[in-house]
Design a protein around this nucleic acid. Structure first.
Lengths: 101, 101
DNA sequence: ATTTGACTTGTCAATCTTTGACAAAGATAT
DNA sequence: ATATCTTTGTCAAAGATTGACAAGTCAAAT
C-alpha cells in the first residue's frame, strides 16, 4: 500500500541521510515547512518537483506520477468518494475531454 | 455520456421553463454568475446544493453524488490523468483512510 | 543538567485564488 | 425597432495557501 507524497519525501530524505534543514535548503524552503509537508499538514508545491527530481536523481515522469496520484488521492479522500462514484467521475472526465476539442 | 454539473443545472432550468434571473434569485446568486456556472467558467458552490435540491425536488443524496463526481471529474481532467494513475490514486485514498484512525 | 542538533507546531503577513456584484454587450423573440 | 434573456469583462472583497520566524519538544552527547 502506497504512502503519501509527504511520507515519500521523508523516506527519500532519511535513506539519503539528509536532515530537514539540508533538504529544505536545496528545495529553497524553510525546514519548518518541509516538516509540515512530510507530515501532511501542507502540500508540496508542484514548482519544486524538478528540484526534487534533481536532488535524488529520480525520473521526472515517475515523480510527476507519484505527485499527481497523491493529489488526486487527497481529493478522493476528502470527498469521501465511493468506488462507483469514482467510476462515474472517470467517465465525466472523459466527457470533458471531448468538450475541449 | 454524462454532462457537467453546469450543463445539468442548465437542463433542469430550461426543462422547468425558468430564466437565469429567476433561478439565480432562488439560489441567491447573480444571473451573470449562474450563466458562468452553467457554461463551466465558474464552480457551483456546495453550500447551495440544498437550495438546488429544494427548487427542483431532487434527492439530496443523488444531487450530492452528481456534484461530487463532477468535481472529481474536473480534477481528473485538469491533471490529465490516465486510468492507471487513477487506480493508484484510489489505492492511495484508501491508504489515507487507514491513517485517519 | 546543560547544550546541541533535529524536528514539530503556532502564528501571521504576504501572496494567490475564487467569488459577488455590476456594467455592458450579444442574442433572440415580438 | 424594443424588450427580454444570456454572456462576457472587470474589479474589489472574501477566502485559501504559502513563506517566514519564534518557540516548543525530544533525544543523544558531554
Amino acid at each position: 500500500m502506497k504512502e503519501t507524497f509527504g511520507e515519500y519525501i521523508k523516506l527519500l530524505r532519511t535513506k539519503n541521510g539528509l536532515t530537514l534543514t539540508k533538504l529544505a535548503a536545496q528545495l529553497d524552503l524553510d525546514a519548518a515547512n518541509l516538516s509540515k509537508i512530510e507530515n501532511g499538514k501542507r502540500d508540496f508545491d508542484e514548482k519544486r518537483l524538478s528540484k526534487l527530481a534533481a536532488i535524488f536523481e529520480l525520473s521526472a515522469q515517475e515523480l510527476q506520477d507519484e505527485y499527481v496520484s497523491d493529489r488526486l488521492a487527497k481529493h478522493i479522500y476528502e470527498m469521501d468518494c465511493s468506488s462507483e462514484l469514482l467510476k462515474v467521475a472517470e467517465e465525466k472526465a472523459a466527457y470533458r475531454r471531448t468538450l475541449k476539442k
